[in-house]
Nucleic acid binder design. Structure first.
Length: 400
DNA sequence: CACATGCTTCGATACGACTC
DNA sequence: GAGTCGTATCGAAGCATGTG
């Protein structure tokens, strides 16, 4: 029996066509402000899955006819040149060739376009602005250029609450105190949102409130991320469908949770550069040794990494660079870092806590887990390649 | 307080990809 | 080949947090 009516409803980018639940006032107020001003500026911040992107997308849908809407995702587009190019292309709606042009030349082209008089207002959204601000290079100068030329409405979207502190002071001043900070969805909020999705995407009578409440509670506890909850609901529905049930039950949720938890690291791992992979393995090895779920970054984890990397073609990088790798892993949300007082030692320790089930990860990459590969379907390819990658590293390093 | 440790920040350098 | 970017790497200086 079919349970899912419309898969698209569970897509990560799906925005319901009716009003947003719980975030609609913010959309309304932003739209009003944009209507009455040429220089509306605001920062929206909050952890992943709290509706930041949904707000921005909703604004564009709402007033798309009267504005030029520009979307820049700073996790992909995060250099001065790339951002300029993207903005120029989105305004002119034609390709822009930046090859061979210097930063100054591109900057001039951009300014020219920004200062052109037009009837439609421009709204620029910088998604994941923290990825831009946290870069070592001064690519955030692009914001200064934009603020100084022409009139644009600007919305900054950030995961980090305090990204503003890293902003160039000249830019920060221009944004003033206009901030929207999004709170976590409560279990009840999540339930309401899930209900909306279930009504849109699932066949009637295949689900009940108890199912949704269970998912909402679980997702709230583990992440507070609404996307997590929606993904879990979808997987649960798939599980029920595969089992040929008429109705989703709690057992399906348990099955689905198993998958959601491992998917993150195992999907990301194969896509990472070699040194990052070895860093992850080193950290996991040490997390297993301490038996308390964390790894000491230096010297322990670094030495483990050195051992792994010793026989690689390019050898191990220095401890200094290893720290930059740790930073990357933090940015990827794979590890969190904390301070600990050192015992029997001076100074202090930095410890890395894996944000994933590292024991399960370790079992899988070591192939010790006999029933690890029994899962069919979409997930198994990525799981196997994570394992393959790790095995290659182990064999090249001559370590087990 | 002087010193140890481990981190962050800043800047220098090397190098590949690209255009002129 | 010169010039320009962007990225990866590393060293020096300095800061924060601890010990004796």
């Amino acid at each position: 029996m079919k349970i899912i009516e419309d898969v698209n409803v569970f897509d990560i980018n799906f925005i319901p066509s009716d009003e947003l639940q719980f975030r609609q006032e913010m959309v309304d107020s932003a739209c009003e402000n944009i209507k009455h001003s040429n220089t509306y500026r605001t920062c929206v911040s909050g952890d992943t899955g709290r509706g930041k992107t949904a707000i921005a997308k909703k604004i564009s849908k709402r007033i798309n006819d009267s504005i030029i809407y520009i979307w820049v995702n700073c996790s992909e587009t995060n250099t001065y040149i790339q951002i300029s190019k993207s903005i120029i292309e989105q305004i002119k709606k034609e390709p822009y060739n930046e090859r061979g042009k210097t930063r100054d030349e591109i900057s001039k082209d951009l300014i020219k376009i920004l200062e052109t008089k037009r009837t439609k207002k421009i709204v620029v959204v910088f998604d994941e602005i923290d990825k831009l601000v946290n870069k070592k290079e001064n690519h955030q100068q692009i914001l200064f250029t934009i603020l100084n030329h022409g009139n644009m409405n600007i919305i900054l979207i950030s995961n980090e609450m305090n990204f503003a502190e890293r902003l160039d002071p000249r830019v920060k001043k221009r944004f003033g105190e206009n901030k929207i900070i999004l709170d976590v969805y409560s279990p009840n909020d999540m339930y309401q949102i899930l209900k909306q999705r279930a009504e849109l995407g699932l066949k009637t009578n295949t689900w009940d409130s108890e199912i949704l409440i269970t998912i909402a509670k679980f997702s709230c506890e583990v992440s507070g991320d609404i996307r997590h909850a929606i993904q879990l609901l979808e997987k649960t529905a798939v599980k029920a469908e595969v089992a040929k049930k008429d109705k989703i039950d709690l057992e399906d949720i348990r099955e689905a949770i198993k998958e959601v938890q491992v998917s993150d690291i195992e999907q990301v791992f194969p896509t990472l550069p070699k040194h990052l992979k070895m860093s992850i393995i080193a950290l996991v090895q040490n997390a297993l040794i301490t038996r308390e779920g964390y790894a000491v970054t230096y010297p322990d984890a670094y030495f483990s990494y050195e051992k792994l990397a010793k026989n690689q073609r390019f050898g191990a990088v220095g401890e200094r660079q290893f720290r930059d790798y740790l930073r990357s892993l933090e940015m990827l949300n794979l590890f969190s870092f904390q301070w600990r007082t050192a015992i029997n030692r001076r100074g202090r320790l930095r410890i890395a806590v894996p944000n994933f089930d590292f024991k399960q990860f370790w079992e899988r990459i070591n192939g010790n887990n006999g029933d690890g590969g029994e899962r069919g379907g979409v997930g198994s390819t990525s799981v196997n390649s994570a394992k393959d990658e790790a095995e290659r590293i182990f064999s090249e390093a001559g370590v087990r």
